[in-house]
């Protein structure tokens, strides 16, 4: 992939990352389990972005965190707060709307190309 295409793709993805992470935090997750969950759905995420993002979301009070020390190694679990759920649903709505509009734009172009 050319570097330009690469950077444009990264830019496209950047905005969706928060939404992807929020969507998986309705149940408590720790860092690596979240990575695995996302990768299962085919979402590849730069880990050096993910961990700082989790802390930022916590600072914005969208998620809450707690240390679980019952297992062999301590893990920090993150889960959506009430406020987080609220924001997530609105953001999801926004995304659905946007992607529908974009889809419209993109497929209209395809029709023109065919004619």
């Amino acid at each position: 992939m050319s570097t330009l295409l690469n950077s444009l793709t990264t830019e496209l993805r950047r905005g969706t990352l928060t939404l992807a992470v929020l969507s998986q935090l309705r149940t408590p997750q720790y860092g690596y389990s979240l990575v695995q969950l996302l990768e299962e759905s085919g979402v590849n995420i730069d880990q050096s972005t993910l961990y700082p993002l989790l802390r930022r979301l916590e600072k914005q009070e969208l998620v809450t965190s707690s240390w679980d020390t019952s297992e062999s190694r301590p893990r920090k679990y993150y889960v959506l707060s009430e406020y987080g759920v609220e924001i997530f649903l609105q953001l999801k709505e926004e995304w659905m709307k946007n992607s529908k509009q974009l889809h419209g734009l993109l497929t209209k172009g395809e029709d023109d190309e065919l004619n």
Binding site: Y30, G31, Y32, S33, Y51, W67, R73, P74, R75, K76
Partner: peptide, 9 residues
């Protein structure tokens, strides 16, 4: 602490 647990995971 979190970083270490993540790396070990």
């Amino acid at each position: 602490l979190e970083l270490r647990s993540t790396i070990e995971d």
